[in-house]
Write a protein that binds this DNA or RNA. Structure first.
Lengths: 151, 151
DNA sequence: CTACATCATGAAGTACATTCACTACATGAC
DNA sequence: GTCATGTAGTGAATGTACTTCATGATGTAG
């Protein structure tokens, strides 16, 4: 009854990757509901956790969105008391988006949730198989990044 | 260049999976720009390609959004002439969202782009390695789906 | 000091998504 | 048949995310 027949072997593998990505997304959505946050705001907090206090320009670049959009995201996170805008010590135009105590705790929860998810997913996979899995992933992403370059 | 085989950490593997998902997403974004479509609309078309003409209720369930939202997505796809609303033969309340010629062609392009991406990603991976990769994926998603059930 | 670039934001617009209320229609009980 | 109840789709209102364009404030090179 299906309109489309597309199941070749590589396609099936890609579909499984996408399925896993969907499940991971669902896990993140649970975290977001618990914390009363949204995906873009969590993404911003994640970047903030990696870099520490950052200008909105840098955040825009890291998130791949326009600076104007970061203004809106930061507005929301200020309203929910996850971050504050601090003056940039060396540039009076810029603000340093800085996590509050709540923000720091949220980022820590996010990281531990991420690690726990990885453990649940891959913790029981035998070492040799997991190594092969990771290698194929690395080769694949590397080759794909090269293909993107060529265009 | 590595001579020592360090044990692969689950978190590192998860990060690689997410990285690959990001690259795939970027490839889809290219398709969307070319076709003048958005991710939710492409998703709807994809489902339509799998199921054939469908009620908006079914689409809402398949997409995991509210029926009201499907109304809006279908409005957009009707405006861009990708689908039409046809009367449901057995239920005068319902409409059958049906791809137009353009919609059918777009779905075909989407599928072939999907297959081509899979080929570019996994086409050159040796069969045995790809099989292990797919197995780990399957075990992982299966185990994870079970863990989600228990809560 | 002037010219130009950069940081953040106001204004305006589009898309996605929600909830709530409502109309039209279907279906099972009597 | 009629009545109660449920289902399909949409209008209204709202919130978030995202964009482009314009502007004020500040930094920087000449």
């Amino acid at each position: 009854m299906k309109y489309i027949h597309y199941m070749t072997a590589p396609t099936e593998v890609l579909d499984r990757v996408l399925h896993l990505a969907t499940l991971v997304q669902a896990d993140l959505a649970r975290f977001e509901r618990e914390q009363g946050l949204t995906t873009p705001r969590v993404h911003l907090l994640w970047v903030l956790g990696e870099t520490g206090p950052t200008t909105q320009q840098s955040l825009a670049q890291a998130l791949g969105v326009t600076p104007r959009n970061v203004t809106g995201l930061v507005d929301g996170l200020v309203a929910s008391a996850h971050v504050t805008r601090e003056p940039h010590p060396g540039d009076r135009r810029a603000t340093l988006v800085t996590p509050t105590d709540l923000g720091t705790r949220t980022i820590a929860d996010l990281v531990s949730s991420h690690v726990a998810l990885a453990q649940r997913l891959f913790g029981d996979v035998p070492t040799a198989r997991l190594a092969t899995f990771a290698e194929v992933l690395e080769e694949t992403t590397h080759r794909f990044a090269q293909l993107m370059e060529e265009e």
